[in-house]
Design a protein around this nucleic acid. Structure first.
Lengths: 169, 169
DNA sequence: ACTGAAAGTTAGGTATAGCTAACATTCCCA
DNA sequence: TGGGAATGTTAGCTATACCTAACTTTCAGT
């Protein structure tokens, strides 16, 4: 489901921008799309025409822009991909926010639907299963940073886990 | 380090292909690059000229192609990105091999160096830390599939973990 | 209601990256 | 050793996606 194809990375970015503008200002205007995508006003018109022809947006020259039902469905899917990737990078891999945002912007166009849904599930699993969780991620960071195996005392770690599960603080 | 930029996704694909051909046949030929990238012979020449001008390959018309030192460094980096992403998709997220390969091919151009190295570390951590590991991934799959929480008995799971760590089978 | 600034469009240009078809080169082997 | 098949190159075309500069439309404030 979703991911209608016939959309380039560039056009996906337009849809994503338009969705955000719709949500914050009711409606999208070419100028704001240009600002958000960091391209020139003149470049936007072409993109809008393409999206309009493909049925993703309602577009009349000189007027505001809104997403069609189809456009909204796809735009939400793209935003979802973006959010999931960013969450994984931030909360699991503990990548810094700026890099996470930049990477998410690029990876959202490359990842396939199956993988996104699996990733959603994986993040949920990590923060649900007591064998993983926040403290486990913290240990991961130590593991990364040190190259060392700081928490090399696995028995101790698991004993603590057992106790904590019996009587959580 | 690495990731010299001034390389489009397309040119990165050429480098990756040339590296593989060098490794399997000593040297790369335009025809085989075309086959591997699934483009026409005529399209390859342009790509080779671009790579040559940028100093990534040794290229003389009508002759074979090899990577320069710079080209080899970048090509190896791309191959590394590909391999790491594929391994994560396959071994951690348990994505099917075909999707994993296709996704890795696209994501390798979108992911940044920090994230790749963090991912390497994460995979290693998962298969090193006894709180994660193969059985934990298996439980993840159940968690995904069921939507249910099959292994809801966390006490039991952690008890088993403790025992197994004391005396591994 | 007019007007000027802001916003939008158009036209023409660049660069990338592919295509096909015609032409050139290489090289194998008869 | 000469000719043809395979390989490589060129030229000209397409499409995307951006740019700038000139032009048009809109609209808010006087």
């Amino acid at each position: 489901m979703s991911t209608s194809d016939d959309l380039s990375d560039s056009l996906e970015n337009y849809l994503e921008a338009i969705l955000e503008l719709e949500e914050t200002q009711k409606v999208a205007r070419a100028k704001e799309i240009a600002d958000r995508l960091q391209i020139q006003r003149g470049s936007v018109t072409g993109g809008l025409k393409a999206l309009s022809e493909k049925g993703y947006i309602n577009y009349q020259p000189y007027s505001y822009i809104t997403l069609t039902a189809k456009g909204k469905r796809i735009a939400r899917d793209i935003a979802h991909r973006h959010a999931v990737i960013k969450e994984f990078l931030l909360k699991v891999l503990q990548i810094d926010p700026l890099t996470a945002e930049t990477s998410a912007c690029k990876m959202e166009h490359a990842i396939d639907p199956k993988t996104i849904e699996r990733l959603v599930c994986f993040i949920e699993y990590i923060f649900t299963c007591p064998r993983a969780g926040q403290d486990w991620i913290q240990s991961f960071l130590n593991y990364c940073a040190g190259g060392n195996r700081r928490q090399a005392n696995c028995d101790q770690c698991i004993e603590a886990l057992r106790k904590n599960l019996a009587s959580p603080e």
